[in-house]
Design a protein around this nucleic acid. Sequence first.
DNA 1: TCTAGATCGTTAGCATTGCTAAGTAAATGT
DNA 2: ACATTTACTTAGCAATGCTAACGATCTAGA
Lengths: 147, 147
Amino acid sequence: MTERSPNPSTSDPGLLAAELRVAVMRTSRRLRAEAATGELSPGRYSVLAGLLASPQTVGQLAAREQIQAPSMTRIVNDLAAVGFISRGENPQDKRQVLVSITDQGSAALMRARSMRTAWLAQRVAALTPQDRATLHQAALILQEMSA
Amino acid sequence: MTERSPNPSTSDPGLLAAELRVAVMRTSRRLRAEAATGELSPGRYSVLAGLLASPQTVGQLAAREQIQAPSMTRIVNDLAAVGFISRGENPQDKRQVLVSITDQGSAALMRARSMRTAWLAQRVAALTPQDRATLHQAALILQEMSA
DNA sequence: TCTAGATCGTTAGCATTGCTAAGTAAATGT
DNA sequence: ACATTTACTTAGCAATGCTAACGATCTAGA
């Protein structure tokens, strides 16, 4: 690897967008399929991981995950039902629900992390350092673009 | 952009994998939401585009899209129902179904292309040439990794 | 040859995960 | 104080993936 096509699509945003879209969609399907074994689905995992740093409101979580509030409510319900998160109040604004990760949730997150990234980590490990650097940069760019 | 963090995760495959997974999943959700307006869903679009070059069997299409055969059967059914593809036989192996794109399908594909990539192309166009080059490389790497 | 097993596609049914519409409770502004 | 806005929830729906089980066809071995 590392040696790839020179520059066919870099100049045409439309062409690059098409190429990127296909790559992202196919990879996401693969990731979803590969992760189906664990106790935490990709979405749940991502939400839980987002709570490690600090508690968040349902709205904040929804915005971060690029989904609508009702979808996040369901995820929060499910995670609460198995004891991985807890709901708290914000005294300043009682409409809000402050979602926090529980110890049980942290444990599940750690347990899931190795399994969840196993497939991808394996592939990533097989790449050249240059390709890894490229993917790292790409991940940052994608995050910024979809934010 | 272009100036980003030096090298935190490039050395640790697990860290990079985690970062990449989140970026890919979030972007795919955004893409799906953004594309929901068109007449062709992301999956249908991708399948149709794959038939431009040459007819393919259901199995080949499923493998390429990283889904199981029954899922592809449904997509093929739907696309055939609206006249975008046609089924043909392989005389050498009558178990197989050779799927071809129709003129109507090509037209729909072209029509959808601009709409479908509009959001992403806009973001891509706003990037620096370096960032575009990075994404192009990343797309190729991702394709290889999930193949 | 002819029979056993593998392969390709389909059908049927289900789970996950996203959405919109509509409702309740709390905050805000006139 | 009343109307509007905001945050979350509830209810129900649509899209899209899956596995299990089946028919048809091909392939290989006794």
